[in-house]
Every structure is written in C-alpha cells, then in structure tokens.
Amino acid sequence: MRLPSWISQHLAALRALLVFTVLLGLAYPLLLVAAGRLPGLSGRADGSLLHVNGTVVGSRLIGQSFTDADGNPDPRYFQSRPSAAGDGYDPTATSASNLGPESVVDTLSGNPGDASPSLLTQVCARSLAVGRLEGVDGSRPYCTADGVGAVLAVFHRDGFAGPVTRVVSVNQTSTPFLAGYAGVTVEPAKIGEDYQALGGVITPIRGTAPAHPAVPADAVTAGASGLDPHISPQYAALQIPRIARERALTEDRVRTLIKQHTDDRALGLLGEPAVNTLELNLALDRT
C-alpha cells in the first residue's frame, strides 16, 4: 500500500532530522571534545589556565588588572592596557567603548553619573596617569595640561567663515586651557549647552606636546574585547625602571624577563610582537 505523498514527505523530513541530530548534535561535538583531549591541546581546550601552587590565578588568554586594595595600580607589577569590559577585564561584560576618533567633546553634567568623557579626554587622562606612575612626560597632542581634550567651539560671524566672534573651551567648565584664540577671549563651557548645534565649529588644538608621546598608544586605549591579555613591548619597556626599583632587580634582569614572555608575530608575519602581562608578572613573583 502506497502512503499518501504528504505522509511520505513528513517521514523523509523526520529521517533527515534524526540523521542530522546524530551527526551534528552528538558525533560532531564528541569529535571536538576528543580532539581537545589530545596532548598539546588539552590545556588550550580547558582555557589556557595558569596555576600557582595548585590554585588557578588566571588565563593566558584573558587579561586582568593588577591593583592594590584601593584599586590603584600596584607598583610591583606590570600594568595591563585599559579595559572597557564592565569595571575592567570583566569576562561577563566583554565590550569596547564604541567611541571613535570623532569623539572629542565631553558630555558635561553636574551629576558625575550623567557625565560622559569623550574618547579624547579618556586618552588624555590615562596618559597623564601613566606618566605620573612611570615618572615620564604624560602629555599628548590635543590634550590640556589637566588631562582633558583640548577642544574649542569657534563661532564665526558668517557661520563657517568670517571673523571669529566667540570661542568656548567645550570640555572645561572652569579656567580654559587657552586665554585667547584669534584675538577673542576663550570662555569656559556651560553645562547643558550644545555648542556645535549653536553653530560653533569644533576645533581641536594640538598644543606643544611632542609628536611621539612617551606613553605608547596601548597604554591609553582599550582593546576591542576589553580582555586583551597582552601589552606592547614598548609599554613593557616603559615600566622597567619602576619594576626594577620596586623589586630590587636590575633593569637588565627585568628586560630579560620581558623578552622571555614576548609572543612573536603569528606565523612570523601577522600582527605585532606582544607581551603576556599575567605570565610576565607570575615570572616576576617567581624571581
């Protein structure tokens, strides 16, 4: 007896469902688990965890902060790059700031919870903080001396042209970083004012900072995932004098440890060399 076509179609679909469930829902996952148990791969499959005296202290794939009880950078350890994941290196909140190079104007508010610094101001503040920690010049182009974006809203008589009639330092509500611009006194910003909407031309001011800042870029910018476990060799080198002083080591010894924990370019040509911060700090503790 021949079954109706609609029943035959449903039976064929059921058979396909069962076959693919076995193949993709059972066989394929079990194959991957078995591959992860192979020698040389099992550690990576388990998360590349690092242990000290039998206790898990982190993963070589996920960055972490090295701070004291008050949340300040611990001077005995190499510092990681900034993180935008939660309160910093939170694996449950991995994310980036989603701010780009045009983010130069802060959102000002009398309530700190409602204020929002631009990417430029974040970079400026971080650079000053790293400079103080490492004892170097933390100044950067387009940053004020107090660590905010050096940005003006310039008003012209004819819109975008003509004589300057008004100038506002959009990221400062107190004394502006410039007294005057184009012969016009610079005003501090007022909370709640959108000077660009009012016709001001947003104008970053480069200032006198060196073209190549002492603080490298990865020390002041967060990674896309917020969990980057590496820093650049340049940022690691900047921290050598502090680490050597705090650990009573020679700078050459610290430099050797950095070299031992620097990962080369992938396949010898992709990316840049990078230093695994957690592994380096664990090596310091062993030293």
Rank of each mutant, 00 (worst) to 15 (best):
T221S: 10
L249R: 13
A209D: 02
A219N: 02
A209W: 05
I205W: 04
Q196K: 10
A211H: 05
G183A: 05
S232D: 10
T208G: 09
Q234S: 12
A182M: 09
G183P: 06
A217S: 10
Q172P: 11
P233T: 11
Y181Q: 02
L178H: 09
I202N: 02
T250V: 03
E193Q: 14
A237M: 04
V186A: 07
A182P: 01
A219T: 08
D218H: 03
P241R: 00
E187S: 12
V186Q: 01
S225N: 09
P233C: 09
G183H: 05
E246T: 13
I191N: 01
T208V: 15
A179T: 10
T203M: 08
I191F: 11
P229E: 01
A236E: 04
A217T: 14
S174H: 11
Q239R: 00
I205N: 03
A209M: 08
P213R: 05
P216M: 10
L249D: 05
S225G: 06
P176G: 02
A182T: 08
E187C: 08
I243M: 09
I202R: 04
A224P: 12
A217M: 07
E193L: 12
T221F: 07
Q172M: 13
A248T: 13
G192S: 09
R242N: 05
N171H: 10
A211I: 11
Y235L: 14
A219I: 03
V220A: 13
V215I: 11
E246V: 14
Q239L: 09
P204S: 01
A211V: 09
A244V: 06
L198S: 07
L249P: 11
T221M: 10
S225L: 12
T208F: 08
A222S: 15
Y235Q: 13
L238E: 02
G200M: 04
S225Y: 06
Y235F: 15
A224V: 14
D194F: 07
R242G: 00
P210G: 11
P216N: 14
L198W: 09
P229D: 01
R242S: 06
L227P: 04
R206T: 00
L249V: 06
I240F: 08
K190W: 06
L178T: 00
A222Y: 03
Y181G: 00
T221L: 15
G223S: 15
V186D: 10
A189G: 13
G183Y: 05
